[in-house]
Structure formats: structure tokens, C-alpha cells
């Protein structure tokens, strides 16, 4: 059953139409990767899916009900969102940072966490393998460690839907692989994961389904093998792709400037 769905979604930024009539739905137990070149509308789509922006037309529905009708607190418990290039503005303790994910459940950093919240924080930290540095301040961590804690913050909400905007951008391969594994594990546990990616190889390997955005429209939507065919992504990116097959997974590789 599809949980989250964009229905004839139209988004404008100023005079520019960023998304033109998008119709996509997202199922539980799946990692859906959104790919597409810069400016294709990935971030805009994810912001709308997370309920942050108001659509110019159409809507986003959660279990059939428009997201806009949901109270902000309820929405926050059901959809967790990791913004692109997420940052922390204060040198918080790692554990406190993760606990921010419990705010929708009524947690207050000014008081000791309830047993329920503390457990959720602990679980989230374990899932990103972050217990080792949870008691250090985030300014003392590497960028990769910080990114893991920010992911754990999103997991700590224990929402049924997880929307992550380029969670692996600017991470080195080890962290990128770890992050994708975590997201896939979430989907295996029943979550509906929507993640935008620049790395088509990771999309091919970790996603159950790939949506290709180009010029504010859905250019392809299907299993990675289908959606990542050179015929589609050549046109979307304006680059010539070739493919290699590694352990049964087809990996697109940008090969020449002209398609």
C-alpha cells in the first residue's frame, strides 16, 4: 500500500515552475531514490513530501489525507526529514543532538529524557554505529561522524516515513556506504524511505525503486535496472552513460560529455 503520494503536484518558485504535475507514490518497505541533474527539482519535491512547502497545485497525501490538513506535530511524528547539507549551530553533545529527533514526541532537552525517548535515542545511535562518539560535542567530531549523528537524529523520531535529501553528498565512500546500508535497513524494518542521490551507482545498488526527475517532470519511475537505462539518463543528464555489471548490479558510469 502506498503511504505517501504526490498528486498532480505543481511547485513554483517565483515565476519559475520547478515541478510540473508530479504524480508519484511511495510504498513502505522500500527505498525510493530520486535522481536527476542539478536543478531538476529533487530538493523541491522532497521538501513538499516532508510537508515544509505549500504546493502551487495538487497536493501531497499521507495515507490518502492531504498533508496540509495534518497538524505540524502529528506530521513531524510520522515524517522524519533530513535536509540537504544539514548542520548543527551549537557544539551540542552527540546524544543531545540525536535527542532533538524526539521533540515531536514531546521530549524537552531542558529535562531528563523519558525512558521511552532515551531508548529511542539509544536505538538510533546503535543503528548508525554512533555510540562511540555520542558523548562528545559535535564540534569535536569529523564531518562523517557528524553526518551519522544527524542521520541518527532523523531515525530517533521513529517515523514511518523517512525523507533524506542527499544524505551522502560530500561524505567519503565508507560513510556513504554505511549511510545507504542504514537507510536500506530502515526500509527492511517497514519504513518508507525516500532519498535523493547524486551518486547513480549507490542508487542502482541500494534503491528498490528509482525516480528520474528532469526539467521538473518524472522521466522514469521503476526498478533501478529499468530507470537507470542509458537511454533515459543520457537524456536526463545530457551526458553519455555506459554501464558495467558488478555482482549482478548494473552500474551506470558517466562516460562522455555528449550523449
Amino acid at each position: 500500500m502506498s503511504r505517501l503520494a504526490a498528486r498532480a503536484l505543481v511547485c513554483r518558485r517565483g515565476p519559475r515552475t520547478v515541478l510540473e504535475s508530479i504524480d508519484v507514490s511511495f510504498a513502505a518497505d522500500q527505498v525510493t531514490a530520486i535522481i536527476g541533474p542539478n536543478g531538476s527539482g529533487k530538493t523541491t519535491l522532497l521538501r513538499h513530501l516532508a510537508g515544509l512547502d505549500r504546493a502551487a497545485g495538487g497536493d501531497v497525501a499521507l495515507d490518502g489525507a492531504p498533508l496540509g490538513q495534518l497538524a505540524a506535530g502529528v506530521r513531524a511524528r510520522r515524517i522524519a526529514y533530513l535536509p540537504q547539507g544539514a548542520s548543527v549551530y551549537w557544539p551540542l553533545l552527540g546524544r543531545d543532538l540525536v535527542a532533538l529527533g524526539r521533540l515531536p514526541h514531546g521530549a524537552d532537552l531542558g529535562r531528563p529524557l523519558s525512558a521511552l525517548d532515551a531508548d529511542a535515542v539509544e536505538r538510533a545511535l546503535r543503528r548508525v554505529d554512533g555510540l562511540a562518539f555520542a558523548d562528545r560535542t559535535v564540534d569535536a567530531l569529523s564531518q562523517g561522524e557528524r553526518a551519522r549523528l544527524l542521520l541518527a537524529r532523523t531515525l530517533a523520531t521513529e517515523a514511518e516515513i523517512l525523507v533524506a535529501d542527499e544524505p551522502v553528498a560530500s561524505l567519503d565512500p565508507a560513510y556513504a556506504l554505511d549511510t545507504m546500508s542504514v537507510l536500506r535497513a530502515e526500509a527492511r524494518c517497514g519504513a518508507c524511505v525516500v532519498v535523493s542521490l547524486h551518486d547513480l551507482g549507490l542508487a542502482a545498488r541500494f534503491a528498490d525503486r528509482v525516480i528520474v526527475l528532469a526539467g521538473g517532470r518524472v522521466a522514469a519511475d521503476g526498478p533501478p535496472d529499468e530507470a537507470l537505462r542509458p537511454a533515459i539518463i543520457d537524456a536526463a543528464y545530457g551526458v553519455g552513460f555506459r554501464t558495467v555489471v558488478l555482482e549482478g548490479v548494473t552500474q551506470p558510469v558517466a562516460w562522455s560529455r555528449r550523449p
Binding site: R47, A50, G51, L52, A72, G73, V74, R75, A76, R77, I79, A80, Y81, L82, P83, A86, S87, V88, Y89, W90, L92, L97, L100, G101, L103, P104, A107, D108, L109, G110, L150, R153, T157
Partner: peptide
């Protein structure tokens, strides 16, 4: 408003996704 201000340490977007208006 302490919880809202706490949420803002993740930036405006993340705070809103956490239910802070």
C-alpha cells in the same frame, strides 16, 4: 519556547520538520 529554540539549532528547515512552526 525552549523546545522550539532547541529545534532551531538544526536550522530552520529541520526545525519545521520537527513540528516547530
Amino acid at each position: 519556547a525552549g523546545r522550539g529554540v532547541d529545534a532551531l539549532s538544526l536550522g530552520d528547515n529541520a526545525a519545521r520538520s520537527l513540528g516547530v512552526e
